[in-house]
Nucleic acid binder design. Sequence first.
RNA 1: GGUCCUAUCGUCUAGCGGUCUAGGACAUUGCCUUCUCAAGGCAAAGAUCAGGGGUUCGAAUCCCCUUAGGACUACCA
Length: 462
Amino acid sequence: MVRVRIAPSPTGFPHLGLIYQALFDYAFAKKNNGKFFIRIEDTDRARFVEGAEDKIYAGLDWVGLTEDESPRKGGEFGPYRQSERQAMGIYKKYALELIEKGGAYYCFCTKERLEQLRKSQETNHQPTMYDKHCRNLSKEEIEKKLSLGESYIIRLKVPENKTIEVEDLIRGKISFDSNLIEDAVLLKADGFPTYHLASSVVDDHLMQTTHVVRGEEWLPSLPKHWLMYEYFGWEKPIFIHTPTIRNPDKSKFSKRYGHTGVDWYINEGFLPEAIRNYLALLSWSHPEGKEIFSLEEFIEVFDFKDIKPVGPVFDLEKLKWMNGEYIRNTKVEILSDKLKEFFKDDDEIKSFFKENASKMDQIILLAQSRMKTLKEFKDLVVYNPTELSLQEKDFAKKLKSEFENIKIWNKDNILNAMREILKTTGAKGNLLYKVLTGKDKGLPLPDMLEILGKEETLKNLH
RNA sequence: GGUCCUAUCGUCUAGCGGUCUAGGACAUUGCCUUCUCAAGGCAAAGAUCAGGGGUUCGAAUCCCCUUAGGACUACCA
């Protein structure tokens, strides 16, 4: 049974990178009738943010990637919060087991010593890593220090002079020189575990994770995790390191260049389907070269092994195009609901909806091909009069008298009147918009004016 | 500095030894449509497949080196 997970730290709304991984996880789990679960990594108390967990759910639910098991949903492998697992003593128990099996050891080095060590290594241009000072402490020494209540941590015992060969699904076999791998801290002085112990090995194993999907920044520590699985004698999951989404300058996707949190996309009026579809096209492509496809279709054709190991640059322009594509392909009634929901706190648009309730579908139909985000609907539809030049005022006057002559106020007659005045004055269409809407472009005038009514139109012109 | 990963149009990518004078999408430009702006349709431009060596009858595709970019190098994840 396939079991995959995301393991976010509760720091706020999900980063697009997390959504990206969740998308792959979700699709793979669904495809294989497996489970997709969330484990909250809240062991670093310094980074804990109140309410962040709910934001993670909100973001994931919004894109439609709802999990099967999590703190909020429960599940047979709980608890799903690391702080709770910590309280149960899970990590310490396994850290001690590792010591017993010869895969880890107590370390009593002070932070000051480590600081000094690092400094001297840096000045000597040596790799900065722990010098294994406590690795060969005798049993007696350890027991003495322990009974004295000395502060300690537990470190991984990395074998010397060995080549550690690991495997990543999308990159294949990778070799590391064990002498260059640090004796990483497994259990901190405060009794909390580090990622290496808790997430990567103990929890993933206990929660029966079959495919460990995580960002490629974890690749360098894979040999440590690999080693631990071997020390414990546990079956290893399949490791998949997804490429990092990049800024235009190829650095890690950051706030400096783009909007990294889903909340921005929600507030900007992006459709979850578009986000999901766009993300699917990063480092992965549809076997038939399709650009637009449903989640269901994605689930059907997706496989981890088809992910490319190259970090893609995030392109907001293409996302916008795709969002426009999804907006255009949405049925008017549904789009109407989406707009209402999106503008639920905007009084101006709300009253606009109310006043034009019967004509709303018609208006949305006109706006549909002209907006790339839901937010843009407002700009399309709101009338904002501006100061006109003398020339423009003159044109407005002529237009008014032309409109006054229209007996039956419908779009055909309005269009004819418009054509007439453009012909006689030689003006461009933009001028009509300027005079009638305050902007030099917008929704088709005949349709909009018909909806607005003759009286209102003349009033605006006046 | 060290270790590891990576390298096809500006961007996302197809390509997995011959079908490649390298295909598609976004963006760009032009034309058509037209009350404006979009949308849509058509077309153009854009990549000596990072560079150099091999292997092979044949390489974007396999190997090596160089270069460039990225990640990691915490008692953070």
